[in-house]
Design a protein around this nucleic acid. Structure first.
Lengths: 136, 136
DNA sequence: GGGCGAACGTTATAGTATAACATTTCACTT
DNA sequence: AAGTGAAATGTTATACTATAACGTTCGCCC
């Protein structure tokens, strides 16, 4: 992940810090509330920062929540894609690596000539804690 | 997919027909424009129909586009999940089956106790036609 | 014909994201 | 130090996506 080490600009750092401190998925407007005290005033400032942070790998977008999370781990390693396991009870979002080129998944489309540039994998369900609590 | 054969209500049929005739992904408001002539006037009517159609398997939501597509094929069969291959050039969205329980993908989270209820898989990239045209 | 649940209609509003344009900052060069 | 070009920032306005809250109508079954 080459761009990973470019220094963050002011607003990018503010947005990333808010997301990282929160340790959970946040919508752009939740982020905006969190960084207002730092001087950021408008949604577009947050979205711009998020766009850059996404490109540099610091932040991921969770499509099915219209939300964003700070990247949990160094997935520079294997070119693995990332997936999210989203608990619909407690809202917890945890990132996990999607193995290799996820051949099982992309096999069918690539046979038809589709060239994948980005892959979104999001699981909805119950995290371990909530699943256990419910079965009790 | 048990509920698959309940008859559609009036609005549900209008929305499904619009989506099926178009043969492409449409946003809720594009659908609204398409069904206005049938008497549907308000966004909420479209969203309500889409919600039911989603539950019955007639329609899928494409999270990364905030759009909807008519289900292309009878995936009642194997309990396979569905994925979408989305061409960022021409906008084409094609549905494909995600094999089995997609063990490669869900292995990591399920080891940690996560119980998957629904899985979203969306690939962005270039369809065969656009990939070829670009390499020319 | 009354009761019930699903579907429908209407208005208003909440929530998510970007357009357009002016200004400032900053690294780099001359 | 002044110039310059790209990136980042700031401001306002607006577009796009989705749901809340409420009342009415329809179809079915008793």
């Amino acid at each position: 992940m080459a761009a990973r080490h470019k220094p963050l600009s002011g607003n990018q750092a503010k947005v990333y810090d808010a997301l990282h401190k929160a340790g959970r998925a946040m919508t752009a407007y939740e982020i905006l509330d969190a960084v207002r005290e730092t001087g950021i005033r408008a949604p577009v400032q947050v979205y711009r920062a998020l766009e850059k942070l996404g490109k540099s790998g610091h932040v991921h977008r969770v499509e099915s929540l219209n939300a964003f999370v700070a990247c949990a781990h160094d997935h520079a390693a294997g070119g693995d894609a990332v997936g999210f396991a989203i608990c619909d009870d407690c809202g917890d979002v945890s990132e996990f690596p999607v193995p290799g080129n996820a051949s099982e998944v992309t096999k069918a489309p690539s046979k038809l000539g589709f060239v994948t540039e980005h892959m979104t994998v999001e699981l909805h369900g119950r995290c371990a804690d909530c699943a256990e609590r419910e079965s009790a």
